[in-house]
Design a protein around this nucleic acid. Sequence first.
DNA 1: CGCATTTGACCTGCGC
DNA 2: GCGCAGGTCAAATGCG
Length: 180
Amino acid sequence: MENFQGFFPTSSSSSTSLSLNLTSSLGYSEFECGKDNDGILGLMADIKVGGATNENNSLVGTTTESEVKIGKTKKGENKKIRKPRYAFQTRSQVDILDDGYRWRKYGHKAVKNSKFPRSYYRCTHQGCKVKKQVQRLTKDEGIVETTYEGMHSHPIQKTNDNFEHILNQMQIYTSFKSII
DNA sequence: CGCATTTGACCTGCGC
DNA sequence: GCGCAGGTCAAATGCG
């Protein structure tokens, strides 16, 4: 992932406050990874919510819930737990945003009605089960939709500042999308 | 050598 | 019940 440094040169400082229109209902602290408001979601929650929106920097997060099975495919309890998902769209040339966490790719799937495949990533931190999906939009190839699922139970592994820089330097596309 | 990525197979849910 | 689509697993492979 080093190549992101090239795309997002870190000059640290000058990190302006981001304005997010983020309808966040972060009421899921009972999940296994939901102890702290760390990481990107925590960051997003911390960033001004509902602030003024300027043209180039607006990010719309979307909160949805999906049913996720705990216990994998093995037979046994198929406890269904509703996990919220947070999706946002960014205009970026690269698919993967370096949000400071370490992600391991575990899947890659072609999606119907989309000419771009969807990539599945899992946080590599031990015990952390946060997942994210990354997909480029068919209708606008410049837009990458990232969907986070779960919350990190550990501190960010790089600096949050980096993520803010990413946001600052991207044209963040705004639109709401509901994911089921 | 250890870790990340790739990729085909497999599983599950849902609509018909 | 069947087929499709989405999501995950895991062996193989690549790379630092």
